[in-house]
Amino acid sequence: MTGADGPRLATPAEFPEMMALLDRYFAYENGGMRARLPFVYDPERSDRHAVVVEDGRIVSHIAAIPQTLSTGTEGETVECWGIGGVATDRRYRGNGHMSRLLEFWLDRMTERNVALSDLGGNRQRYAHFGYENAGIEYRYSLTERSFDGEPIASDAATVAVDTGGSDEHLEALHRIHEAELYRVVRDPAGSRTVFGQRGLETIVYDDGDEPAYVCLTRESRSPTVEEFGGSEAGLEALLSHLLAVLDLNELTARVPPRHPLEPVFARHSSFWTARPHRKVRICDLPTLLEAFAGQLEARWLESGRTEHGSIELGIEDESDERDERAESVRIAYGPDSVTVEPGTERPDVELERTAMTSLLFGMPDRTADLRTGDPFLETALPLRFFVWASEHV
Rank of each mutant, 00 (worst) to 15 (best):
P12F: 05
F15R: 06
R24D: 03
R24L: 09
F26V: 03
F26T: 05
Y28V: 14
N30Y: 08
G31W: 01
G31T: 09
R36C: 09
P38A: 05
V40C: 12
V40D: 04
D42C: 09
P43Q: 09
E44M: 12
P66Q: 02
S70K: 04
T73V: 11
G75T: 10
E76P: 00
V78C: 05
E79R: 05
E79N: 08
C80D: 05
G82M: 08
I83A: 02
V86L: 08
A87M: 10
T88Q: 07
Y92E: 00
R93P: 00
N95K: 14
L102I: 13
M109K: 03
T110F: 13
N113M: 14
V114Y: 03
G120S: 15
N133Q: 11
E144V: 13
R145Y: 04
S146D: 04
E150C: 04
P151I: 02
A156E: 11
A157D: 04
T158S: 07
A160N: 00
A160W: 00
V161T: 04
G165P: 01
S166I: 08
R175C: 05
E178P: 01
A179T: 14
V185Q: 12
R186P: 00
D187E: 13
R192E: 03
R192A: 02
Q197Y: 04
R198Y: 13
E201R: 15
D209F: 03
D209T: 11
P223V: 04
P223I: 11
V225Q: 02
V225F: 00
E226I: 14
E227M: 10
E232G: 07
L235T: 00
L235K: 02
E236Q: 15
E236M: 01
E236L: 08
L239P: 01
L239M: 05
L246I: 06
N249F: 13
A253V: 03
V255G: 09
H259N: 10
V264W: 00
S269T: 04
S270G: 09
W272L: 12
W272A: 15
R275P: 06
R275T: 15
R275F: 12
D284A: 12
L285W: 03
A293W: 01
Q295V: 12
L301R: 12
R305S: 12
E307V: 08
S310R: 13
L313T: 06
D317V: 11
R322W: 06
S328Q: 10
V329H: 01
R330Q: 11
T339F: 07
V340H: 06
R346E: 14
D348N: 09
L351K: 06
L360D: 04
L360I: 05
D365K: 11
T367Y: 13
D369L: 15
L377P: 01
A380E: 06
W388T: 10
A389R: 12
